[in-house]
Amino acid sequence: MGNQSTLESVGMKLFAEQYRDCRVLITGHTGFKGSWLALWLTKLGANVFGYSLPPESTPNHWELLSMDISQYFHDIRDAETMAKTVAEVRPEIVFHLAAQPLVRRSYREPLETWSTNVMGTANLLEACRHSPNLRAIVVVTTDKCYENQEWAWGYRENDRLGGHDPYSASKAAAELVVNSYRKAFFHHAEAPLLASARAGNVIGGGDWSEDRLIPDLVRSLTERKTLLIRSPSATRPWQHVLESLSGYLLLGQKLLQGKTEMTGAWNFGPETEGNRTVADVLEGLQANWPKMTWQTNDQPQPHEANLLYLDNAKAKTLLGWKPVWNFDKTLEATGQWYRHYYQNGQLSSEAQLAYYITTARIAGVEWAFS
């Protein structure tokens, strides 16, 4: 899938070079998406700073990457420390990914979920409000922030927000915080431009989180156990982690360029063919892992949505963003990453990033030619 030299040759003139020498703060940089984002931004020539709790899992993608960036290990619920850090870093753009991101954990720890996802977001935006060098903020929420009606069509950015479980509801509330700060504090000409990003069910190599399909599958294979599946018929908008990150980076580029019309909420979801059931994902991965087995868990489970789609028309039409990898390629890349790690003890993250960029150029995606 390529190599490091390939990444350096194709990865340095993307996104109109807005990130070269740019001071970028990532909250949640030790997480699954945050670690991939830090890798990509570093390759784009950015000066990256991280703010997060230490990684929870062993192994974890962040520590395996062994990246040399300035990082701060604090809780985003600590408003005073957040303010001091933002003042010290003096970022030009902030990507806010830090969150309690798990549905089932939100049932066990609802107060932690609400305080992290809502007040954590408010703490960050309040700190940003007093940062004179800041030009742009991208707050990452989730596709689950919509009030789920079990519709057979995709949710659009202007559909009603809401949530049944504490995770979904807290992310909907975080969107309200973002909208409030945009209108109340970031409306004048010198204010940073603020947008939110809602991605689908993101998968890819390097995720070892609890209660997620792919990490659970990987653990079952390494421990030689049968995977228990909660909802094999549940449909989600599956996409590779690099798809969502290309959307965040493109959105950030437009904000850094001062395009005020790019503020607001944005969906970054797969094409319709990426809306598949859990069973479809497992069957697709089995082509890469013939040894995997699973069975349905018949025990009562906390409520989770059955149907969930995203409408990505706004991002495609107004941002010029579009998905690069289809469903099959997403599963192939994910399976290959984990196989390479467990068989060889090596990361293929840089090689996969280079390959993704090359594929984007072949597909004629705008950000890959900037």
Rank of each mutant, 00 (worst) to 15 (best):
residue 319 L to W: 02
residue 288 N to F: 15
residue 119 M to V: 11
residue 153 W to P: 13
residue 259 K to C: 13
residue 228 L to S: 15
residue 354 A to N: 09
residue 31 G to Q: 00
residue 168 S to N: 06
residue 25 L to T: 07
residue 36 W to E: 01
residue 359 T to N: 12
residue 216 D to T: 08
residue 319 L to S: 05
residue 226 T to K: 11
residue 81 T to E: 15
residue 286 Q to M: 11
residue 191 A to M: 11
residue 262 M to G: 09
residue 273 E to V: 00
residue 268 F to H: 06
residue 252 G to W: 04
residue 146 Y to C: 07
residue 54 P to Y: 02
residue 65 L to W: 01
residue 62 W to P: 04
residue 217 L to F: 12
residue 128 C to Y: 03
residue 102 L to K: 13
residue 171 K to F: 07
residue 280 D to K: 00
residue 335 G to F: 00
residue 99 A to G: 12
residue 210 E to G: 14
residue 230 R to H: 12
residue 311 D to T: 10
residue 19 Y to M: 05
residue 125 L to S: 05
residue 255 L to D: 06
residue 16 A to I: 12
residue 284 G to H: 03
residue 252 G to Q: 01
residue 226 T to E: 12
residue 312 N to H: 13
residue 108 R to Y: 11
residue 63 E to L: 15
residue 50 G to Y: 01
residue 215 P to V: 03
residue 203 I to Q: 00
residue 30 T to R: 01
residue 278 V to W: 04
residue 310 L to Q: 03
residue 298 D to H: 13
residue 92 E to M: 10
residue 136 A to C: 08
residue 263 T to A: 12
residue 157 E to S: 10
residue 206 G to C: 06
residue 83 A to T: 12
residue 27 T to L: 03
residue 252 G to R: 04
residue 283 E to A: 13
residue 270 P to Q: 02
residue 264 G to M: 04
residue 233 S to Y: 05
residue 311 D to H: 09
residue 108 R to S: 12
residue 50 G to P: 06
residue 269 G to Q: 00
residue 103 V to Y: 05
residue 355 Y to T: 10
residue 15 F to V: 05
residue 105 R to P: 11
residue 293 T to I: 13
residue 78 D to C: 09
residue 291 K to W: 15
residue 127 A to P: 00
residue 277 T to D: 02
residue 141 T to S: 01
residue 150 E to V: 07
residue 347 L to P: 05
residue 86 V to F: 05
residue 152 A to L: 15
residue 236 R to A: 00
residue 46 A to C: 09
residue 239 Q to S: 11
residue 186 F to I: 06
residue 111 L to Q: 11
residue 139 V to T: 10
residue 170 S to W: 04
residue 291 K to E: 15
residue 249 L to V: 11
residue 287 A to L: 14
residue 293 T to L: 13
residue 154 G to T: 00
residue 345 G to Q: 11
residue 41 L to H: 01
residue 253 Q to P: 12
residue 193 L to T: 05
residue 254 K to S: 12
residue 209 S to T: 06
residue 288 N to I: 14
residue 79 A to L: 15
residue 261 E to C: 14
residue 328 D to L: 04
residue 95 F to R: 05
residue 146 Y to S: 05
residue 292 M to N: 02
residue 330 T to F: 00
residue 91 P to D: 02
residue 329 K to H: 13
residue 13 K to N: 14
residue 340 H to G: 14
residue 208 W to V: 07
residue 37 L to V: 05
residue 191 A to D: 08
residue 148 N to P: 07
residue 271 E to A: 09
residue 162 G to R: 01
residue 244 S to M: 10
residue 210 E to D: 14
residue 26 I to S: 02
residue 171 K to D: 00
residue 205 G to N: 02
residue 339 R to P: 07
residue 78 D to M: 06
residue 77 R to M: 10
residue 194 L to I: 07
residue 176 L to A: 14
residue 37 L to I: 06
residue 176 L to G: 15
residue 317 T to L: 15
residue 232 P to S: 03
residue 247 G to D: 08
residue 3 N to M: 10
